[in-house]
Amino acid sequence: MGCDGGTIPKRHELVKGPKKVEKVDRNAERAAKWKYCALSQEKLRRPIVSCEMGRLFNKDAIIEYLLDKTAERPNMEVVTHIRGIKDIKELNLTDNPEWAGERSNTKGDVYEDLHCGMFICPVVGLEMNGKHRFCYLQTCGCVFSDRALKEIKTDICHKCGDLFKDEDLVVLNGTKEEGEKLREKMEQKRAKAKTKKSKKSKAAETVATPSESKDDTKGPEVDGKESSLQTDGESSQSDVAGTSSSTEGSKLSKSAASKRSVQEMTEKSEVFKSLFTTHSSAKRTKAQTSNWVTHTPYHF
């Protein structure tokens, strides 16, 4: 019964029971969702964006994904619904004045509050650390706590003043049920957009087809008239030549009239004519004209 040294083993050392289910640390789970990018797993830094499912990303990580979707990434299933830059919204966040940053505890001699969030609600002041429910507006991107939206019910954004509807609210890092609702909402929105595009394309086709039919109906009439126009074309050419010569003569006369000197205009006064250099008062005699003489040292 005994082991070396006279020790007696206990039951849990001899009998192997069922393995305990490992529980996820809630604090670590909250920090992973609210302090790290859902795609690159890097720390969140401005500019921060969110999708229609309410997940937080670094904007540069999303741009890299959109530029090269073939690259292998660990969390590709998180961004499969993002088709382009229009499917994300840059968030207008409010900084937490109590957040000292990452370099505040480099020595390890300062108490570090893991529950302290980088951002807060601008209305109530709650920290965005995962303990409280937060939402953002798809119209302007401003982020508020759910408590602020419930206590102050309005259709105007508390931060920027833009109008919004209840449909524009998106929950950040919600539960599974809230994620399913957001997915259904996203699919319905995209289906409506597709129907609108198809209706616009059909309307454009219907507008184009009547104009083409009108051109086709006018075609034979024009062909019937061409024969009569050809017969009259030869007779009209001589008339056109005569009219063109007359128009050219009238243009020459108009140009000659426009080039008439101001001094020859009888309707103008002498005071007005004296303003121009062609007037007799502007002309100088040889005695009045100056004679320029250049002097250089080469003459010596």
Rank of each mutant, 00 (worst) to 15 (best):
D4L: 03
G5Q: 12
G6F: 08
I8C: 08
P9W: 02
R11T: 12
V15S: 06
K16A: 09
G17A: 01
K19Q: 00
E22R: 11
K23F: 10
A32V: 05
W34K: 06
E42N: 10
K43N: 15
K43W: 14
L44F: 08
I48Y: 03
S50D: 05
G54N: 07
L56M: 05
N58V: 00
A61K: 09
I62Y: 04
E64N: 11
L66N: 12
L66Y: 09
R73S: 01
P74H: 05
P74L: 03
N75G: 08
V78T: 13
H81A: 03
I82Y: 07
I82P: 04
I82N: 02
E90N: 02
L93E: 03
D95K: 06
A100P: 03
G101Y: 06
G101F: 02
R103G: 06
N105I: 02
K107S: 10
G108V: 07
D109S: 07
D113Y: 08
C116I: 12
P122H: 14
P122M: 14
M128D: 01
N129M: 06
K131M: 09
H132F: 02
H132Q: 11
R133N: 04
F134T: 02
C142A: 08
C142D: 01
D146C: 00
A148C: 07
L149P: 00
L149K: 01
L149T: 00
K150I: 08
E151G: 05
C160F: 03
D162E: 07
D166H: 05
E167Y: 01
L169W: 01
L172S: 02
T175V: 15
K176L: 10
K176F: 07
E180P: 01
E180F: 10
K181R: 09
E187M: 06
Q188D: 13
K189N: 15
K189W: 10
T195W: 03
K196A: 15
K197P: 15
K197F: 10
S198T: 12
K202V: 07
T206D: 07
S213H: 11
K214E: 11
T217A: 08
K218S: 01
E221T: 09
E221Y: 10
E221C: 06
K225L: 09
S227A: 13
L229N: 10
L229M: 05
T231E: 15
T231L: 14
T231K: 13
D232F: 13
E234R: 12
Q237T: 14
V240H: 15
G242I: 04
T247L: 14
S250N: 11
K251E: 12
S255L: 13
S255R: 11
A256C: 14
A256L: 06
S258K: 10
V262P: 07
Q263H: 13
Q263E: 14
E264W: 00
M265H: 10
K268S: 08
F272V: 04
F272E: 10
L275V: 13
L275D: 12
F276W: 11
T278Q: 13
S281A: 13
R284L: 14
T285Q: 09
Q288I: 11
T289E: 15
S290L: 10
T296K: 01
P297H: 00
